[in-house]
Design a protein around this nucleic acid. Structure first.
Lengths: 212, 212
DNA sequence: CTCTGTGAACCACTTCACAGCA
DNA sequence: TGCTGTGAAGTGGTTCACAGAG
């Protein structure tokens, strides 16, 4: 399934959560499309990949579709997450409450710096020793690793995780990372995002100069 | 220019920075492609959109291409950034040193909660009053706003920023946000990324069950 | 002979448009 | 009639393959 499709499923689910809270029982693809600023056909097609959830002439039952999407996205069970790297970002993610409610439990936070091991985040999450990462993965049956270490250390951390059996990784490190086929990596690259905005500002400026 | 292309330009630049540090003077599209795990033709095409930077039979001069990319991405001047929202994420971003070196200066950090205003981040960045956001934007000639507020507050913050003349926004808020044509928004949605990984784990599990 | 720059072919995702069901 | 599900058409981005420069 294309990554773009699964990304949208998350977005649909969040929107459904919201309208469910407002007491809406039924919603059409057009209704969703308007709220999300998307094409209605795309929403129908995305959903149709997974079954026939709608009722012709009516739309989708909000509660029913929510349950389907939660199951499709694997949110009908909780996930156990380890954060590697207790720098600014790692600490912030550890304390960020938004994940818990979505079914992601931050089970561990580790770092390799001796002066950090044994300390706690603002929110009280203890920092463990990154040297024990491999045993932690198996012992705690971890599902997902979040990597928030400096680029130079990223590949080494990934190798450890993969060897220990992790198959889903979210990395904030810009370093390109090699993994075997069966491991899925998603990357969030803040510099790329900021530089994309910088490009936009620069190209606007150039245009303004050109037409002057 | 497609967003995917500009994203890759950032990636190319980072790779060039790295190889330049290793003393490499010249690199071919194939060489870059191998390091980045991309198609060489795509790299050539991306670069060719902006000029003829290469030498046939030789490749690209690393230092020359770096300067070109920095100019194209608008990194030949510094950007002034405000972070809105002094929660876990906002504070972490304010203290994150990686931006500074890339040409992005965190000029201000604001929040609307009275108990936060006047405090400082771990790294010493003072938290200002979000009520003064509009005047801050003009007075400090801010370029880019980073939004790290709860979803419910996002649209209101964006409206203020747009009215004050901001034209580039990076939001961590999952809420869909409406802006005028001339404003560029980039979204980083952590839940979508985690749920994408969750989908992958779930689909693997289903496959395993099916073939059993 | 090597490697760029690029038209042409290819592929994937999106949108349209409509048949079909409630 | 209203809205889903879906083949067909459209769009945009990627990869191929080669002409041409050094």
């Amino acid at each position: 399934m294309p990554e773009l499709t699964t990304n949208r499923l998350s977005v649909y689910l969040r929107c459904l959560d919201e309208v469910a809270g407002q007491g809406v029982r039924t919603i059409s693809s057009t209704g969703l499309a308007q709220r999300l600023d998307l094409n209605a056909a795309q929403i129908r097609k995305d959903l149709a990949h997974f079954g026939e959830f709608g009722v012709r002439g009516v739309g989708y039952a909000v509660e029913d579709l929510r349950q389907h999407l939660r199951a499709i996205l694997g949110l009908d069970r909780r996930h156990r997450v380890v954060i590697v790297g207790a720098g600014n970002l790692g600490l912030a993610l550890a304390d960020y409450g938004g994940f818990r409610s979505d079914g992601f439990d931050i089970v561990a936070l580790v770092d390799s710096a001796p002066e950090k091991i044994g300390t706690r985040s603002r929110g009280g999450v203890p920092v463990g020793d990154a040297a024990e990462l491999a045993s932690l993965v198996t012992r705690e049956r971890l599902d997902i690793a979040v990597i928030a270490v400096p680029p130079a250390a990223a590949q080494q951390v990934v190798d450890q995780l993969v060897k220990a059996g992790i198959s889903a990784i979210l990395t904030f490190s810009p370093a390109p990372v090699r993994v075997p086929e069966h491991v899925r990596v998603r990357r969030v690259d803040l510099s790329v995002q900021l530089e994309g905005l910088s490009y936009f500002l620069a190209s606007e400026r150039d245009e303004a100069n050109a037409t002057r």
